[in-house]
Design a protein around this nucleic acid. Structure first.
Lengths: 179, 179
DNA sequence: GCGCATATACCTACAGATAGATTGGCTCTG
DNA sequence: CAGAGCCAATCTATCTGTAGGTATATGCGC
């Protein structure tokens, strides 16, 4: 992957996670890189294509980071903690909410391929947590707990970002994992 | 408040909660009401003014509905349940996420007066929950629990909306309030 | 080592649509 | 007649997306 594509995707991901899909334009991205907007179209024919590429890259990186952390964990509880830490690293490393949390919120206003991609990431998150909890809980309780955990992490990011107080994320997660 | 203003605000609130602030335009709103976009500017000089009016109306209605439900509750636990139900009614009554959850997510891309208004609503939510928990917990634990509760509800709405499965909201909340 | 094709990585220029916003004026009602 | 409510016309800025061109590099047959 060329340097320009990488920088383009970095700028786009950052913009969407901060301000939303519709607040990011090819022109702004181009300007940030010192190129023309038509050159952005050279790499991504449509904005939708860029969005999907971003979700794919994001999902890859997220699950790679998650696996790296979770594989060291001994207990299911520790693996859930690794999950929360992976979310937290994304937040504190950049002060940005989750890409797919943002796209999930905007989903009704997105091209359906893109909202589907974001939904897939979120579902994969819930599934990962549910799978990780297996052995410790019954299926129904596990499903509820998984939804709860992912919802809390996504919501806590938005809360922290809106209130400009990132300790809120830690507060919410501490209480979530206290039980 | 005239009929047109009301309808305008309804359409705008619905659009923002479904698709986000930047995906809603004066032209679309006007078209939905069968008037011209210049007439929308007659009622709201700038888009920002419309946004702020929406948050104010939303907050008023939310806390009115919340107080009506919570005043009937006997225990702190029941009041928290009333809080979750108020959120849920907003979601299931319209299949839309919270207005201020959406604006909170987009906050970095909004006029600061608007993102401040959204943040104020979210903070008021956290404060309400924290206040309601007083007597049952110590201050620090209360603060954490309040952040946790609001984060979960906001996140659960987004999850449900993105996955197009509103039972996810109930799952998350059931697990949240089980303890 | 030369000529030619092809690919990469941009560019200029622009189309067509849409954004938010303004000005001035019409019409109806009290 | 005054004001509320609305529209026509228009401005400027910006959006996504397209068409076609240019400079440079790379590979390939001869």
């Amino acid at each position: 992957m060329s340097d320009t594509v990488e920088k383009l995707m970095d700028a786009a991901e950052s913009g969407i996670r901060l301000r939303g899909y519709h607040a990011v334009s090819f022109r702004d991205l181009a300007e940030e890189l010192g190129i023309k907007s038509s050159s952005v179209h050279y790499y991504f024919r449509q904005k939708e294509d860029l969005g999907i590429a971003l979700v794919e890259r994001y999902a890859e990186r997220f699950f790679a980071a998650l696996d790296a952390k979770a594989s060291k964990a001994k207990t299911p509880e520790d693996r859930i903690r690794a999950f929360a830490r992976t979310y937290r690293d994304a937040l504190t490393g950049s002060d940005r909410i989750c890409l797919c949390g943002m796209l999930g919120a905007e989903s009704c206003g997105l091209p359906s391929t893109l909202s589907d991609a974001a939904a897939e990431f979120l579902q994969a998150n819930v599934d990962w947590v549910a799978k990780t909890l297996s052995g410790t809980m019954k299926p129904k309780a596990r499903k509820r707990r998984a939804a709860h955990i992912v919802a809390t992490l996504q919501g806590a990011m938005i809360l922290a970002s809106s209130l400009k107080d990132y300790s809120i994320y830690d507060s919410a997660v501490q209480d979530l994992l206290a039980a």
